[in-house]
Computed example of a mutant assay.
Amino acid sequence: MPTATQAQRARKTRGMQSRAALPVLALDAGNYDLKFYSGSGHPKAIRSVRFQLPQGRDPVSFSDASPLIELPDGRRYHFGAQAYKYRRQQQTVVENKVELARLHLYACLEPIDDARSEFPLALFVSTPDPARNAASLEQQLLGAHEFKRNGVEFRVQVESVKVVREGMGAYYHASQQGLIPDSGYTIVVDIGGGTWLTRLIDADGEVIDENVMDRGGTYELATAIGFDHRLTDALGTTADPCVVMDGFRMDHAYADTGLSWADWLDEYLEPWFKDIFQRIKAQYTPYMPRVTRFLVTGGGSHLIAERLAGRRLFAVVGDPQFANVRGLYLLSTDTQLCMTPA
C-alpha cells in the first residue's frame, strides 16, 4: 500500500498522461542560454546573446539556432552564436533578463508542425524571484504578439502565463526520475550563468526556505579566469568572460585560439565550489539533520559533477541544462504538479 507521500508524488509525476489542447511552450530564459520545450523531441537552446542591427546593415546568416527577429517598428535583433559575428553584441548575463522577456519569447517561438505560425499559446516561464518579477513578466507576455522570425510572420496570442520559481522545474523533473526521497528535506542547488540559487523543499513539495544569489554563477568564475595572466598574456588582450563561459562546454578552450585553462582550472574551480556550499551550509544549518538530498542542477552543474560523484546525499540531474524547462512543461500536463505557490 503506497504511503500518502508516495501517492502525492505519483500524482505530481504522472502528468504525461493528459496534454492540454492549447499549444504549450515552457521557457527558461537563462543568462547563458534560452531554453525552451514544446513537449516533443529534445528541449532546445539558443545562446543568450543578441545584436541589434542598424537599418542599413544586412544580417549574417540566420537559423533556428540563431534566429533573426524583426519587430513591426522595424527593429531587428539577431540572437545566438551568430551574434558574435558582429561587433558590440549584447550579453543577457550583464543585463536584466526580465526586461527582455518579450524578445526572448520571440527568439524561442517556432512554427507548429513546421508550418503554423498563427496560434494561441499557454506559456510556462520561470524566474528566480516571482514575487518581484511575475507581474512584469505577465504584462509583457500576455496578449497578442506580431513579429517576424527568420522571415516568417508570426501572430501569437498568449492566453495564459504561469510564472514559477526557477529551480522548481528541476525538482519536478527529478521527482519524476525517482531522484527525490519520500521523506526529509531536499535542497535544490541551481547553478546558472549569472546567478545561483537554492530552495529548501519538504517531503510535501513545499518551499520552506530559499536564497537567490544575484552573482556567483559561472559568469563570476569565467571573469576570474579571464583575468589570469596565463590567458591574457597569450591573447595579448583581456579575455571576454562570455567566451570563457562557452569554453566551459568545449574542453576549456578560448574559442578557436588553441588556448586553454584546463591545466589550472582547479585553482579557480575549487574556491568557487567551496564558497557556494559553505553559504548553503550556513543558511540551512538548522535543517541539515533532516536533509536527505542535495539536488544539483543548472547549466553550471557539470563543472562540479565529478566532485559530487559517489556522495550519498548528492544527485546531479541528468542533462542538467534542460532539467528546469522539462519540469516547467510537466506543469502543463498535470496541475497537481504545482504544489508550491509562485
Rank of each mutant, 00 (worst) to 15 (best):
A262Q: 15
V207D: 10
D246Y: 00
G236R: 11
D251N: 13
T223P: 05
G216I: 05
A239W: 09
A222Y: 00
M250I: 04
W261M: 07
N211P: 07
L200Y: 06
I225A: 06
A234Q: 15
F227K: 10
S260Q: 09
Y219F: 06
Y254E: 05
H229P: 10
F248K: 03
G216P: 07
D209I: 10
G205S: 00
M250S: 11
T238M: 15
T218Y: 06
D251H: 13
H252T: 04
D266V: 01
G216W: 09
L235A: 09
D228K: 07
D204R: 13
E210T: 02
T198R: 11
G258H: 05
T232P: 07
N211F: 14
Y254T: 00
V243L: 14
V243S: 04
R230P: 05
H252R: 12
I208S: 03
G216D: 09
F248C: 03
L200C: 08
A224H: 15
T218L: 11
A203Q: 13
D233K: 10
A262K: 15
L197H: 04
E267F: 12
V244G: 07
H252I: 03
A253G: 08
A255G: 02
D240C: 09
F227L: 14
A262I: 11
F248S: 02
A262R: 15
A255V: 01
L221V: 02
L200N: 09
L231S: 01
I208T: 01
M250C: 13
D256G: 04
D263S: 12
A255L: 08
D246W: 02
A222I: 10
L221N: 05
D246M: 01
A224W: 15
D202H: 07
R199E: 08
V244L: 09
T237A: 13
A253Y: 00
G247D: 05
A234E: 14
D256Q: 15
T237Q: 15
Y268H: 12
Y268E: 06
L200P: 05
R230C: 05
A253S: 11
Y254W: 12
Y219N: 12
V212C: 00
L231M: 14
D256K: 15
G258D: 06
R215K: 14
V212T: 12
D266A: 13
D263W: 04
V207C: 12
G226L: 01
D263H: 03
G236P: 04
A255Y: 11
W264M: 02
G258E: 04
T232I: 01
